[in-house]
Design a protein around this nucleic acid. Sequence first.
DNA 1: AAGTCACTCAACCGCAGGACG
DNA 2: GCGTCCTGCGGTTGAGTGACT
Length: 318
Amino acid sequence: MGRPPCCDKSNVKKGLWTEEEDAKILAYVAIHGVGNWSLIPKKAGLNRCGKSCRLRWTNYLRPDLKHDSFSPQEEELIIECHRIIGSRWSSIARKLPGRTDNDVKNHWNTKLKKKLMKMGIDPVTHKPVSQVLSEFRNISGHGNASFKTEPSNNSILTQSNSAWEMMRNTTTNHESYYNSSMMFTNSASSEFQTTPFHFSGHPSNLLNGTTSSCSSSSSSASITQPNQVPQTPVTNFYWSDFLLSDPVPQVVGSSATSDLTFAQNEHHFNNQAEYISQNIDSNASVTCHSASSFVDEILDKDQEMLSQFPQLLNDFDY
DNA sequence: AAGTCACTCAACCGCAGGACG
DNA sequence: GCGTCCTGCGGTTGAGTGACT
């Protein structure tokens, strides 16, 4: 027994909005304001679902929205936010005046993910692809060679859009743990090496180069392995500094700028992750092997985070 | 010119949670 | 406490469009 539909789907118009429909919503909102969207279609003379009206207003008609392309500063901010909180698009959008969660989500899926991948950075973990796969091997492998790394001209990125998505295809059990721990994992070495490799052995979908289920990804993505090796971060920031103020600078208008370059931001957050991992619990291993279960480890980490860094969570509406 | 493919982005869907009676 | 309504959210879809063959 599912939830009843919000309206009679068979009798409401769907698809793109016409100028006339937009005008009706604008006129209605100008007089009555927003709210009670379920009644707006009837009152405004629209044959649309109320939910659709709200979405049209929220994502397109709102007068405070920006309809121009994303600035480099906005893109950097999205990447930074995504690194910290993941795909909480509404939270990220709130840091970007004039942008909606839909805008941010679409821009991420169509542009920024590819941008990161071209840099050899996994867009899910924001770590170098080779490191992500190496760590995954440590977690899941138990020493067996489900896949191995070896020099190859075949970049992993030619086979999949994301190392993370490949892993997700392999197993889902590790996902939540890995995702949550990634942010706080103190890398054994901060010197990342983007060693090209390819899989050998199962899973077959990896062998076959099957792309992920990501809807916006392109099967044509053929990205050469970057020669650049990310440099060892220079410690200029500490997590506690980060918490003193809003962890993510808000872009105010299109003229807003960030003092940090993209590369500097990479270092910025690497160091924050390193710092917090050292302070959360020196006794807690960052690997799953020391925990009784994935869930236990995640819950433990969450509790530690909440007790020691409440501001971090508050800033992102946890 | 026609067909195919990849990409973008507006819109839809289902679910979750809060407010309220 | 329960049911209903409303809103917000993240994931996904598909129409439109431009590039390419």
